[in-house]
């Protein structure tokens, strides 16, 4: 018995070391990326990567497929944009307001949605987010079809000028790292353990005495709040808020990103988002219809590598060699 736990412990240690090395490599790449690539493009990737990570907290680690996450993301874009532009909030306060707004919306939508499972859960989230879409279409403060334009980036903590592209980039990178760390922390926590057990076998979790609806609602609100964090950032990066961010296509896109990258993995949604945003960016100048290609990619993903980019990597021989996965 001691031998078994010994080997698995050493394996865990190598796995940890390899993981830490990969994370550091990724961080270094992200730190130097704005000197090579266009910062606004990178910031877009980071915003969507954070959004997909937040979504994955719910889909990958709790087993709940929400089809209405655009409401939290896009809602926060509006909240932050409005607070910064109309009320003169500082950027950090504006983002916090976006997060709080998204969390409250998560509480309301989640409260109704968690009462049902599977496709019904997805449909309730879709219906409620569509209601929010039409609210945004009609409401005064969103300026309807025009959207909010010219949102000032302002000064972070009053002295860092976010109009400087690099300042803005490193602010976004910092928030992104914090957000992904929050997802990682929640997943690898005592609470996250219960979420995983609910995903694995909900009835069993109930029979062990867990009020699973409260845990699901908790996860829903956390996911919504983190999606709001991504939305708040996006409002400052692009300096506008439009209906695109609350439309149902956005909810679909985040599902695609997460699925493509690998659901239930920490890094999957990041790579998925990077891939989708990159493809969209390059195709937008060619005239080739983006939706056709993303549709094709989606089909290929579902047919050939269902675990997603990172999921397939984790299951590959290379991952076994690196000690990330125990050999069968």
């Amino acid at each position: 018995m001691t031998e078994i736990s010994m080997t698995s412990e050493t394996r865990n240690q190598t796995a940890n070391r390899v993981q830490i090395a990969l994370i550091i490599a990724l961080l270094i790449a992200l730190i130097f990326a704005p000197f090579v690539l266009y910062p606004v493009f990178l910031m877009k990737v980071l915003c969507f990567a954070l959004f997909a990570s937040a979504f994955n907290l719910l889909l990958g680690f709790t087993g709940l497929l929400s089809f209405g996450h655009a409401a939290f993301f896009g809602g926060a874009v509006y909240f932050t944009a409005h607070a910064v532009k109309e009320w003169g909030f500082s950027p950090e306060a504006g983002i916090l307001l976006g997060v709080a707004g998204a969390a409250v919306m998560g509480l309301v939508i989640g409260f109704f949605a968690i009462r049902r499972q599977g496709i019904y859960f997805a449909m309730i989230t879709l219906a409620l987010s569509q209601m929010f879409f039409f609210f945004c279409l009609q409401a005064e403060f969103t300026k309807g079809e025009d959207g909010l334009q010219g949102v000032p980036r302002g000064h972070l903590l009053r002295f860092i000028d976010l109009n400087e592209p690099l300042n803005m980039y490193f602010f976004v990178l910092g928030v992104f790292v914090l957000g992904v760390f929050a997802v990682w922390r929640i997943v690898h926590s005592p609470f996250g353990m219960i979420l995983r057990s609910i995903r694995e076998n909900e009835n069993r979790a109930i029979s062990l005495g867990y009020s699973v609806n409260l845990y699901k609602l908790g996860a829903f609100v956390m996911s919504a709040a983190l999606a709001g964090l991504a939305g708040g950032l996006k409002a400052l990066v692009f300096q506008f808020a439009t209906l695109t961010d609350v439309a149902w296509q956005m909810s679909g896109e985040v599902i695609l990103m997460t699925l493509l990258g690998g659901i239930g993995t920490i890094f999957g949604p990041i790579f998925g988002a990077a891939f989708v945003v990159t493809v969209q960016n390059y195709l937008s100048t060619t005239g080739f219809p983006v939706t056709v290609l993303t549709g094709l990619i989606f089909i290929v993903c579902v047919l050939l590598f269902r675990r997603g980019i990172v999921g397939e990597f984790n299951a590959s021989n290379l991952a076994v060699k690196l000690g990330l996965k125990s050999p069968k």
Binding site: R185, I186, H188, S189, P190, F191, G192, M193, I194, R196, S197, E200, N201, R204, A205, L208, G209, Y210, G218, M222
Partner: peptide, 29 residues
């Protein structure tokens, strides 16, 4: 059972509740 948790984790999920270690989302595993 919880199929994709280890045997030890399966038991711990049950022990977490009476141990009052089930809502702490900010603590490490």
């Amino acid at each position: 059972i919880f199929p994709h948790l280890t045997v030890l984790e399966n038991i711990r999920v049950a022990l977490q509740r009476p141990g009052n270690l089930s809502t702490q989302f900010w603590l490490p595993l």
